[in-house]
């Protein structure tokens, strides 16, 4: 019994040291994906419990953080994703790659609109813009922007090929810029440039 107990303790200790340290990071992403703290709590908790059950199977020394994110993404897709999910079609034809920058620099000096923009748009607005992204884009954008995963890591986590990851990231960026700009105009942080 005591050897079993010490085995258990060792497992718990290594799990705490290697896996649980990523809790903040997982929670941040969970929050962006589920959009509410209660669900994010549950999602993270479920992820760690599942991870703990399979901790013996996890190859120590490989990328633990990516492994945890893969588990979480799977749970999210299977259990939390809006049930009546339908693919969304988005028309981005008229949005340039650097839409926001283009709009802001069109305003020009003297007040330095860029600086003004970053000073006036708050965390909440960014949070909203990210949360308003369609789910498929949001997941990829969050994994890249917030978590700093590489294209290849994201491809492994969400089971997509790297080309799809890049194109979703690209379109997610465009959507994000457009939504931040619309928000800034709506709230009078910047005045829309004359066309």
């Amino acid at each position: 019994m005591s050897s079993r107990q010490s085995q258990k303790d060792a497992k718990r200790e290594s799990f705490e040291k290697e896996a649980l340290v990523h809790l903040d990071s997982l929670f941040r992403t969970a929050l962006r994906m589920t959009k509410n703290e209660g669900d994010a709590d549950d999602l993270v908790q479920e992820t760690f419990l599942k991870a703990y059950r399979f901790w013996d199977k996890f190859e120590k020394g490989t990328n633990c953080r990516a492994w945890l994110f893969k588990i979480m993404t799977n749970i999210f897709i299977n259990n939390y994703r809006a049930k009546a999910w339908t693919p969304q079609t988005i028309d981005l034809e008229d949005v340039d790659d650097d839409f926001l920058f283009g709009q802001l620099s069109a305003l020009g000096p003297p007040e330095d609109p860029e600086k003004q923009f970053f000073n006036k748009v708050f965390d909440d607005d960014v949070k909203r813009a990210v949360e308003e992204l369609p789910e498929d884009f949001r997941l990829v954008v969050v994994l890249s922007f917030l978590e700093g995963f590489s294209y290849q890591e994201i491809a492994d986590i969400v089971d997509l090929n790297i080309g799809t990851v890049k194109s979703r990231l690209h379109r997610g960026r465009k959507l994000l810029q457009k939504s931040l700009w619309d928000y800034a105009v709506k709230n009078g942080f910047v005045k829309e440039a004359a066309k």
Binding site: L20, L23, V44, Q45, F48, L49, Y52
Partner: peptide, 14 residues
């Protein structure tokens, strides 16, 4: 708080 909750769950899972 979340970490504590998870550790508790792990213990009862064990």
């Amino acid at each position: 708080r979340l970490k504590k909750k998870i550790l508790e769950c792990i213990d009862c899972d064990d």
